[in-house]
């Protein structure tokens, strides 16, 4: 899946927030989000430029990247080894905004 069309999972993908911050994540991390996976695996402009504009504030995009990295790291971990709880990393101030973003980007 990741290797499609000669795209390497190690490629860097740029996520740009509405207020102009950009975040670089590896493709294998970005595709943890179903929405980003669809963007990157189809013939959209995002796939060609490896750049995805995200319609959220920088702090939300940052937290989203953090979660995707967390998911990528711990999803394949041994069942017994519990990863750290991500709840602690979400400041309540952005929880609502992040929820809306998560609803859109974290779909399977």
């Amino acid at each position: 899946m990741l290797q499609m069309n000669g795209k390497s999972p190690e490629d860097w993908i740029r996520l740009i927030s509405t207020d102009g911050y950009s975040y670089l994540v590896q493709r294998k991390v970005a595709v943890m989000s179903g929405t980003l996976r669809n963007m990157l695996n189809n013939d959209f402009a995002e796939a060609a430029s490896n750049t995805c504009p995200i319609n959220e504030r920088g702090i939300i995009v940052e937290k989203l990247c953090e979660y995707l990295q967390y998911k990528h790291t711990y999803e394949n971990a041994l069942p017994r080894q519990d990863g750290p709880d991500f709840t602690e990393r979400i400041p309540p101030e952005i929880a609502l905004e992040l929820l809306v973003a998560a609803d859109y980007y974290d779909s399977k």
Binding site: N76, A95, L99
Partner: peptide, 30 residues
């Protein structure tokens, strides 16, 4: 079963958990 995929809580459900924890705290949620 080492090959079993772990089901991590989704970001949305984690957010909802945080929101529920702070539901009475108007300041915190903004």
């Amino acid at each position: 079963t080492n090959f079993e995929k772990r089901r991590l809580p989704s970001l949305a459900s984690t957010c909802i958990k945080v929101i529920s924890q702070h539901i009475d705290d108007v300041e915190a949620l903004g």
